[in-house]
Design a protein around this nucleic acid. Structure first.
Lengths: 345, 345
DNA sequence: TTGTAAGCGTTATCAA
DNA sequence: TTGATAACGCTTACAA
């Protein structure tokens, strides 16, 4: 009636080998203190001899949990920013015996459906979301599955979901203030994808900073970007085509900043002599490109680790994590891509 | 007797709502062609109305598969080299409805045990290994679990496991030949971790190339590295301390090459005027560092995608993938870090 | 302290 | 074409 796994031992094989009931085997593995010492020894010996590991599906079905956590990542495998976030997540999760399932999103409905189905299939105990919004398809949102959720790097569009993030707005102010403090008066803002949580917050900070500095709106332009290298290249081309070029470029992330720098440098523009560039995120690349990039360093490992810890603690209590907003510090790192504007400007 | 998931519908709720048996609901979802049109419609309607998704644990237990694939990654979250490999894996896996579980290794027994347990718990249908050897703990190897296995980037230390890789040895020859062709006669080899599969193959290629070029062994030195940035820094320090410095540096991967370049450049050494550096891998960083790095480009996405495809095809046939060795082409990319040696040398 | 047996939610066999 | 039901392998309430 059913295909059986060839030769892997089941709990009753162990029970037989140890001369006990299956219940005792189960207890030896889950609540060893409640067994007599010699029975326990006998059972554990049989377990070792047979190489027994409990079947996960059967156990999950019975106990209703899987010790699996879904990590939702936006787009293209794992973008540079997320590698350290994942490392932080992985560290905390495995410390508590949880395993990480990757759910990548690329904007396609298929991917979104897979993620949502995974959650509703009760295949996992909790979800970490780094995409800024709750995956939803056909009106089904993973927030409706009553699975504990924690958001990383963004407040999320569902009520009561705790978030771990940096203060995007304040950091964006720091970006702009840095350039303004150096004397820049004509700025360009290279934006992230429209409506993206971080983009919105950072642009707000940018606008606040230029308002406070009393810059005229005509001295400031906004270029629609996409967080990708390509978006930075496009911004660079636009810059090259401008009659009155800005002297300071505020980028919404590092990848675009680097794309911008590569593009204008190829056209003979000197950084920072002719134009200054500030990035956001603090990815490794930012310290290796030429010139090295002034940027906002996000505590990427800690963002992931803190969120994972929050989730794991809640799961341990068999509840949802308390709604809260944990703000970690971002930091302006001044490197070689920024300087005072050229005299002529 | 048992905690039940609060409000998620089960198959019998759907059956009741549609006025059919649970068997019919199951069939409507798995073999829809075997139902009368109107019954099918009625069932699927109920499924939609109730928002029913089959419980994964129950299904896995019943059918004996989970549609999950474990990806074993060595160390530190996801090192730069692997991001694209993962992207390729993810693309192929999700095309066939498989989900990716991450198993990171950091050399600790705990991590290894988790990976091995996952496999023996039958929690997954297949495994992709990028670490060059089969995870093993306490004498239990995942190769013994009769779970289909495919190795990426390395032939693996278990018989009959298919591998998808580039020809490390030939690529290493290309690295060395490039420098030799430029006129370099004193070379330094910055190695990967001792015994690592790729390291061994690449060093073999290096030795073959210098032998063929007739270089004296005294003109060549080997520095023990670790694939990490730090290893490159150490190699750079050693270089700076040498009386008779080599003019060409062959690195076993890009991260070390970049670490080396940063270190010696800080000490005033000019690249490539004073010393040439070749990397291996073709990570993004290699095209953004200063100077840009001559390196071997590995088809990272394809390595992952091909391996995943191999595995998924085998799983579809409910068998193990055919033992084979698929070699993809690596390519020497000449950039700015290499030039003829200085005249004085 | 240990054993018996019910039940987790599916799917597949068999009978109708 | 559909329904009743056993079985997947485990944990746990209850009885001994």
């Amino acid at each position: 009636m059913q295909r059986r796994t060839e030769h892997l031992p089941r709990i009753r094989d162990v029970a037989k080998a140890a001369g006990v009931s299956t219940a005792t085997v189960s207890r030896a593995l889950t609540v060893p203190d409640k067994l007599r010492h010699d029975t326990k020894a006998r059972v554990l010996d049989a377990v070792r001899r047979l190489g027994y590991t409990p079947n996960a599906a059967a156990r999950n079905l019975r106990v209703g949990t899987s010790k699996m956590v879904l990590v939702v990542i936006p787009g293209r495998g794992a973008p540079p920013f997320f590698s350290e976030v994942l490392h932080g997540i992985d560290t905390e999760l495995s410390a508590d015996g949880y395993t990480m399932i990757m759910g990548t999103l690329d904007g396609s409905p298929e991917k979104a459906r897979r993620v949502v189905d995974l959650v509703f299939a009760r295949h996992l105990d909790g979800v970490l979301v780094t995409s800024g919004h709750v995956p939803t398809i056909d009106g089904r949102s993973i927030a409706d599955a009553s699975v504990p959720l924690v958001s990383i790097c963004a407040e999320i569009d569902a009520p009561g979901v705790p978030a771990v993030l940096v203060d995007d707005e304040a950091c964006a102010v720091a970006q702009a203030d840095h350039l303004i403090g150096l004397g820049h008066r004509r700025l360009m803002y290279v934006a992230g994808p429209k409506g993206n949580y971080n983009e919105v917050a950072r642009y707000r900070g940018f606008l606040a900073a230029i308002a406070r500095a009393g810059l005229a709106r005509k001295d400031v332009c906004r270029h629609q970007g996409d967080y990708l290298f390509a978006g930075g290249v496009a911004a660079g081309r636009r810059f090259l085509a401008m009659r009155e070029q800005p002297t300071g470029i505020v980028c919404c992330n590092d990848e675009m900043a680097i794309g911008f720098m590569k593009t204008v440098a190829q056209a003979g523009v000197r950084i920072p002599a002719d134009v200054s560039v500030v990035g956001f995120d603090g990815i490794e690349l930012a310290d290796f490109c030429e010139p090295t990039l002034t940027t906002i360093r996000q505590p990427r490992f800690d963002l992931g680790a803190t969120a994972a810890r929050l989730l794991v603690d809640a799961l341990g209590r068999r509840g949802a994590p308390a709604p809260q907003r944990i703000v970690l510090a971002g930091e302006l790192i001044v490197r070689d891509s920024t300087a005072p504007p050229p005299k002529s400007a």
